[in-house]
């Protein structure tokens, strides 16, 4: 009886230690804040945020992404661009394409792809194509590097057109396609 109790306590302690094994990761998740009002956790949420911080092996989201991110229309405003094809190719030549939804979000689940880095990317919609000259070394979130504003450690958010042309936001989006990104112009 006593032994069982001790074992139980021991197990509980181990679990407790295990659950807070990575305080750095916990802080990174916390720093991203709660869900925006009126946008449920799902395909349209957290546009512009580093998806794999949460959709990675340490959670808190259950669905894991190999790569995920957001494509906006222009470089200044954070308006999602729908229907952009994101083309990715890894070091072994393995390729995946994904298409953005109306807030600009896209992702490739780990169940579908385990890329061998480095990975090259390009984005395409209609006649417009933009290539990232450098490669991705090991980061699954485009938005981890592509933060606002453009600075010494970030090229700014990803945009389909190189210059802001004040195009209207996509219609018929279930949530607002305009992201509130800290630092966006």
């Amino acid at each position: 009886m006593k032994a069982t109790f001790t074992l139980l306590c021991f197990g509980a302690a181990l679990l407790a230690i295990g659950s807070c094994a990575d305080p750095v990761h916990d802080l990174q998740v916390k720093a991203l804040g709660g869900e925006a009002p009126n946008i449920p956790a799902g395909d349209y949420h957290r546009a512009g945020q580093p998806c794999t911080t949460c959709h990675g092996q340490y959670g808190p989201a259950t669905k894991q992404f190999a790569i995920g991110g957001t494509i906006f229309h222009g470089p200044d405003k954070a308006i999602g661009e729908e229907g952009v094809r994101v083309e990715m190719i890894d070091a072994t030549g393995s390729q995946r394409n994904a298409t953005t939804n109306c807030v600009g979000n896209f992702f490739v689940p780990t169940s579908d792809w385990d890329p061998a880095y480095p990975v090259l990317v390009m984005i395409r919609k209609g006649a417009i194509g933009r290539t990232m000259n450098s490669h991705i070394g090991r980061e699954g979130s485009c938005n981890q590097c592509h933060k606002d504003p453009p600075s010494f450690d970030s090229p700014g958010h990803i945009s389909l057109v190189p210059n802001e042309d004040n195009a209207p936001p996509p219609q018929d989006c279930p949530v607002s396609p305009v992201a509130s990104l800290p630092g966006a112009r």
């Binding site: 480095p118 450098s134 490669h135 991705i136 070394g137 090991r138 980061e139 981890q144 590097c145 450690d153 970030s154």
Partner: peptide, 11 residues
Amino acid sequence: GKRCSTLDCHG
């Protein structure tokens, strides 16, 4: 610069 310096590596 090309091979080691991306923001997720030695940058």
